[in-house]
């Protein structure tokens, strides 16, 4: 049931492991995940690499229940039950989607401070895929 092949995954490791963003040289806005042309000005493809802090706030979230998980996450659902997924507004500006971790689904709230952590996402083709998930940021405000 391969749908993100290993080579395809490897190409995106800097964004997934280090959250490497792009600062637009023209308008200064930060793009993440990466774009060919800056999504804020649509006028430049010249970027500086920018290491994101991984910190942000929950912009919106969902609790994925039975019937709502893609097949490759069915095992996780079976083992751990319903899991939260959030769109997080990062401190540097861009929003990004990610699973929440180390949190009771009931405790996820709009606006809550979170920070990215490198976690196992799932296993496909026998290869563990790592990427970021968001955990509550107890020092954040």
């Amino acid at each position: 049931m391969a749908h993100v092949s290993v080579p395809m995954y490897w190409r995106t490791i800097p964004q997934r492991y280090q959250m490497m963003g792009q600062k637009c040289k023209k308008c200064g806005a930060v793009n993440f995940p990466p774009k060919g042309v800056c999504k804020y000005c649509n006028a430049s493809s010249e970027f500086e690499e920018l290491q994101l802090s991984g910190k942000g706030k929950v912009h919106t979230f969902v609790l994925i229940g039975a019937g709502g998980a893609p097949p490759e996450f069915a095992d996780q659902m079976k083992a751990g039950g319903s899991y939260p997924v959030a769109i997080v507004e990062l401190a540097e500006g861009p929003k990004v989607i990610g699973q929440m971790t180390d949190v009771n689904p009931k405790d996820v709230k709009m606006g809550m401070p979170v920070k990215a952590e490198l976690k196992k996402i799932y296993t496909e083709e026998g290869v563990i895929r790592y990427g970021f998930k968001f955990a509550p940021d107890l020092e954040g405000k």
Binding site: H3, T60, V62, A69, P70, Y83, V85, G131
Partner: peptide, 30 residues
């Protein structure tokens, strides 16, 4: 669900564990 989900963004939305119900739920909640 496998092939329904692949009309969304496969690189991030799908890898966060969502299908379309989850994506529309994100919009609904907001």
């Amino acid at each position: 669900k496998y092939w329904l989900g692949v009309s969304g963004d496969t690189e991030y939305e799908r890898l966060a564990g969502t299908t379309f119900a989850g994506l529309y739920a994100l919009i609904a909640h907001r």
